[in-house]
Computed example of a mutant assay.
Amino acid sequence: MNDGCPGNGQVKKFVFRGKSSSNGETRGEYLEVVIPELLSAGYSFYTWPSAPLLAWYLWTQRRHLHGLRVLELGCGTALPGILAAKCGAHVTLSDSVALPRSLQHLSACCEANGLIPGRDVQLIGLSWGLFLADFHALRPLDLVIASDCFYEPTQFEDVLATVAYLIEGSDSKLLCAYQERSGDWSIEALLKKWGLKGAILDLDSLSESTGVDFRALIGERSLHILEISSE
């Protein structure tokens, strides 16, 4: 991965709608997130398909997000993290410490949604498996989120080592949306090595319980949401 070079961009709009009931009354709810993208730049300047899936799942859980301490790993344009922040969570957004332009673009994504870095959200440079000073100050956390972090097998263990440290000794968990790219790739042995357990969420059951058609969001892609917690 590299920072890439700024190129032709676009602003992508994501609209989240739902209903809530209070005192016998039902009202509609609406949230809009806009993401500036640089399509000719590196990976982190583009919103990959797993991010909207995770964002929609978080939207269905918005009642539980308020006040939670949330960290997004490898967030790129940070669609899920920005949504969580706009739903009242205390959010820290992170991307590789080695990609300063990506972090700069991340700041622009926040500002495009009325979130001021350092006030409404926190931004840090964090490389998986590299435990620098700022990393230790992140705990305790209530929730860690990530989308498409499992795209390069050589980095799987770094991701899981990072998660294992962040959620150790707590009820915190990782929610990770990912795209299945090869049937030969597996994290099962690494989960066991780092004292973790994982379960893939049943999107059909989620669709029934939330009213969100997750299968329509996925389309023809092999996308999943994985929940990882300590054993």
Rank of each mutant, 00 (worst) to 15 (best):
E208N: 10
D213Q: 03
G18T: 11
W56Q: 15
L166R: 06
W194H: 15
L115W: 07
C5H: 15
W59H: 01
L54K: 03
K86L: 07
Y165F: 12
Q179C: 13
L83P: 01
E72I: 10
L175D: 04
I167Y: 04
T60W: 04
V163Q: 03
K173I: 13
P117V: 08
V15K: 03
N8T: 14
L31N: 04
V97Y: 11
R221W: 07
E180C: 11
E168I: 15
A177D: 03
R69W: 08
H66A: 14
V212A: 15
S230T: 13
E25R: 14
V15I: 09
S182I: 11
S21P: 07
I116A: 11
P140I: 02
H90A: 12
V159I: 11
K193F: 10
T77K: 00
E188L: 12
A55E: 06
G183Q: 14
I116L: 13
G183T: 10
L106V: 03
S40L: 12
L166Y: 06
W59R: 02
E111P: 02
A189I: 10
L79E: 07
S50R: 04
N8Y: 11
I82N: 00
P153F: 00
A189W: 12
L53E: 05
A112K: 08
L83T: 08
L93R: 07
L138D: 01
F156N: 06
R215L: 13
S22N: 12
F156T: 03
S127P: 08
L201V: 07
I228H: 03
A108Q: 13
G129I: 06
S186T: 10
F16K: 06
Q10A: 15
L201D: 10
L79R: 00
Q104I: 12
G7R: 03
S186R: 06
L38Q: 12
H90L: 14
G81M: 05
R17V: 14
S147V: 01
K19S: 14
C5G: 12
G198S: 09
C109V: 05
S172L: 11
L223M: 09
G4Q: 09
V97E: 14
P36T: 02
I187S: 05
L31P: 04
R27P: 10
W128H: 08
L175E: 04
P80T: 10
T26W: 09
L83M: 09
K197R: 12
K19Y: 14
S102E: 07
K12N: 12
I145W: 02
L166D: 01
Q104S: 15
S107A: 10
I218D: 08
Y151F: 11
D148F: 01
H66R: 12
G28I: 02
L206N: 04
N23Q: 15
S207I: 00
L99E: 06
